[in-house]
Nucleic acid binder design. Sequence first.
DNA 1: CAAAATTACTAAACCGATTTAGTAAATCCA
DNA 2: TGGATTTACTAAATCGGTTTAGTAATTTTG
Lengths: 338, 338
Amino acid sequence: MRMTISDIAKLANVSKSAVSIVLNNKSGVSEKTRSKVLAIIEKYNYNPSQIAQSLAIRETKSIGLIIKEIDNPYFAKLMRGVYDECSNLGYSVLLGSSELSTEKETEIIKTLVSKRVDGVIISPLQSEESDFTYLHNLLNDNYPVVVLGIITNYSTNVVDIDHIKAAYDAVTYLINHGHKRIAHFAGPVHSGHGQRRLEGYKQALIDNSLQIDKNYIVPVEPYTPNGYEAGKELFSKNIELPTAVFCYNDLVAIGLINALTELGIDVPNSVSVMGFDNIDFGKYVKIPLTTIQMPAYEIGKTAANLLIKQINNSSSPLVEKVILEHKIIERNSVSQNS
Amino acid sequence: MRMTISDIAKLANVSKSAVSIVLNNKSGVSEKTRSKVLAIIEKYNYNPSQIAQSLAIRETKSIGLIIKEIDNPYFAKLMRGVYDECSNLGYSVLLGSSELSTEKETEIIKTLVSKRVDGVIISPLQSEESDFTYLHNLLNDNYPVVVLGIITNYSTNVVDIDHIKAAYDAVTYLINHGHKRIAHFAGPVHSGHGQRRLEGYKQALIDNSLQIDKNYIVPVEPYTPNGYEAGKELFSKNIELPTAVFCYNDLVAIGLINALTELGIDVPNSVSVMGFDNIDFGKYVKIPLTTIQMPAYEIGKTAANLLIKQINNSSSPLVEKVILEHKIIERNSVSQNS
DNA sequence: CAAAATTACTAAACCGATTTAGTAAATCCA
DNA sequence: TGGATTTACTAAATCGGTTTAGTAATTTTG
């Protein structure tokens, strides 16, 4: 069986307390005993149980990360950000993926809490079913949480960009390129980001005295095939067609471009397409994407940093809201409208 | 403070044992007490500590997953496979990313073991520095492990494809398309997969009586920019140029295609390019990629399933090697050579 | 040099669960 | 009816660490 602290203590002819002291590099033993114990530890390759430790010190040095989808370039980057930061600061990350199910989301949190993670970072679902009871409970328990998005009525730590402003900027960019009929392939209902981006889209139109046309707002699941389908459908309609489309994300934009190309519609000269996220692949796609950069890696990194700061500072539970900068990445999918 | 089993016991006027029995749905208490206890648990939203549980039952219901890079479409898919399966079977996953550093790899394993995961899935680095001591130790401790690749001299569970055969098939496919001068943008040294694919490449040439030309074998880090650089360099050389390139992975292939396009070389008509992995994006790229499909999701899923099977069956530590099928995905980056 | 302070060490309690062994009461059965 | 089982329950030990309180020995200090 695996070595325990008692085994080591016996072998070194000291008490468990002494071994614990050298393990934690505290003072209270002579150099002589310290090295004696260290030698035994080395010799038997003793690796203390973090489980037992955690039970005693009530800390697991693990955090929970709940995203919506693991294989999604945006979340992958974000994950890497939190992983890197956690790694640097000595924390492990327990992975959770809600896969757009509110029940799963709640269940994951329950599991993470039962595993006593020291805190959680969550990219929350925000549909009608979301009652955020779990958040309420976490906050009630004074649990360190950072939310990757804004949930109205809850005072939590936040790391995000200003989606409204970002969408506003994207649409303004299109308007500045002479576009007047601008459609929006909007995010799904369960997405808080989607709602905010839609808001920014509308505001930009209003501020430029452009009509908001319901036909031009089409909600789309945030994947390439859905962008493709929606593109095929919209651009086959017998209505006055848009000259530009602002997409919920790059994945959708790529699907849309594919659809347009198949329909023989030139991108960007007949229709301009704007994405969102700036995933790595946007560069390499048929028509390199003009898009808004979401600093996914930084969001992850910042969130982890903030969370761990809160963990180590649980006395002062002040709430921080970090809004990171977005920017427009100009490539080839948008052109001047004549 | 958070409720403990003792608190619940006191509140329900029973012993801790009784509470434990109802928590674990065992027999030994009357229906009356069971529902009494259940009511208290419900009322106080009691969530038992898996940490304490784990210490007692010596099981954490967590596994460790060690990959090389989190944001890498191949690993992201794979991760999702292991996550899904673990989720279904009631296990959590602790994430580890070695980022191509042997030291990090070893350190991660140490952390995972100290957290007492029930088993680990690893996509191992295989450079000269790798001495696999950690693997040796894990195996010695009779620790359930599944390796995503083949490490010679170690008898471990394996889930992988036959890389030699896959590369052989890819190159044969190029040969069948009339290509005789076929280059290989080979994987990095730290990659076992890379070594095997190179082997398959060579074998295919040999079996078809084609020369192996050292100039045609260029080792490349497995990212798009590296494929691009290597492409620029090779195709600017004053040598007899290849008519086809078999790339270590899709990322490299995409970079290469970009380089070729920039050099004014037509893909696939002047130079054919073959990738490896079949990442989702291969479809949407300028020249849709012809490639070999790595069943990343299935590899992950299978690995998790196998690992958990071994965990629950630790008595019979028989070793399983699962080799999954690959296949050629034909798109537009390869054409007949005239 | 004696009292005070420090150092080196340990026994025992504790963290929050499970499990074993044991007891009293209820039920079975012949 | 009365001994054997079964049922319902609990006290105490245990998992593998940390921490507190205490003791004996050594060092400091005025």
